[in-house]
Design a protein around this nucleic acid. Structure first.
Lengths: 182, 182
DNA sequence: ACCTGAACACCGTTCAAGT
DNA sequence: ACCTGAACACCGTTCAAGT
């Protein structure tokens, strides 16, 4: 990629981050191209699908979250590690309102540009869940898919303006269902 | 409304029920009018907004559910009543995939055609929750809004094809968080 | 190589014109 | 009264034409 092309790529991504954060993950791609001052074709060549654009935006946060998962796993009690990680992935998903739907769909869609990233996220969560279960800190009858579904549920609640004020409390209720009283 | 107009109204509603159930609550209104064989203006006069159309579709189910709530309240132990009602409202919402978003938004939007229906639903759920809480069957630190948020979360999970297989299990996990062990 | 924007096939919504 | 469908302002997506 030439320096000029890279400049375009970066600028589109910057504008996209802004608009998707402000207007949600279904913001108009036309609008992004327009605001970035590039042709629609340029946006589409750099990001062949909305998922590809989302993936580029989420990659940084996902990578940090993967590292964080490793650190938490080593340094924190298993219940604390699991809850901290849950809180963070819900926040990342909520940053681009509506993105959680694509993330969940990507898990089973190998063709999605988000597939690899989301499978990795899910695996990181599953590891934290497994450790908590081994130590008796988390209920044994849920798996990584269930955990991801609960993340989806929490991110969806956070995305709804009418539920926003209660979403912290809902998080605690569901967190309480994942952890076992010890 | 003339007999001819009523025929149009009913036919549009019938077609809409079919298409929204098949394609989700965001199915094309143009498509509905086209399939029903009426002009777009006719659809819009009978149903001035997508919410109005959804309301007409949901009203029957909502009314039945309100009656059911009353019956359950009188005949069933409070925990059974609450869970049965939860299961049914989640199923009703899931029938028109994506409708739960409008339902949740309508609670705070007095201008929405769905407002009155959804406030009524929420009130019915709150009554069942309150009885369960009085009898110590439900955790005391949640309110009607939290219950509605959890209904939203469950309906959203059920709406996601990738999570569908687990959604019964997720229901049980969250139900377990609402009820107290006795 | 890279970029642009017209073109196509769709939307939701409104409203003049018809019966 | 009631209905129709053109018109408007938007989409997402593709691709010929330009540099």
């Amino acid at each position: 990629m030439s320096a000029d092309a890279k400049k375009n790529y970066d600028h589109v991504l910057e504008v996209a981050r802004d608009l998707l954060a402000t207007q949600g993950a279904d913001a108009s791609l036309r609008d992004i191209a327009r605001t970035a001052g590039v042709g629609l074709g340029t946006l589409y060549r750099h990001f062949p699908s909305r998922e590809a654009l989302l993936e580029a935006l989420l990659r940084t946060s996902f990578d940090q979250l993967a590292i964080k998962a490793g650190q938490l796993d080593k340094t924190q009690p298993s219940d604390v590690a699991l809850l901290s990680w849950l809180r963070e992935i819900v926040a990342v998903a909520h940053k681009y309102s509506g993105a959680i739907k694509s993330m969940v769909a990507a898990i089973e869609d190998e063709g999605s540009a988000l597939h690899a990233s989301c499978v990795k996220m899910k695996a990181a969560g599953t590891r934290l869940l497994l450790r908590a279960q081994k130590q008796g800190a988390a209920r044994p009858d849920i798996d990584g898919t269930d955990l991801f579904a609960l993340v989806g549920a929490l991110a969806w609640v956070a995305d709804q303006p009418a539920l926003g004020p209660r979403s912290d409390h809902i998080f605690n209720v569901i967190a309480g269902a994942i952890l076992t009283d010890q």
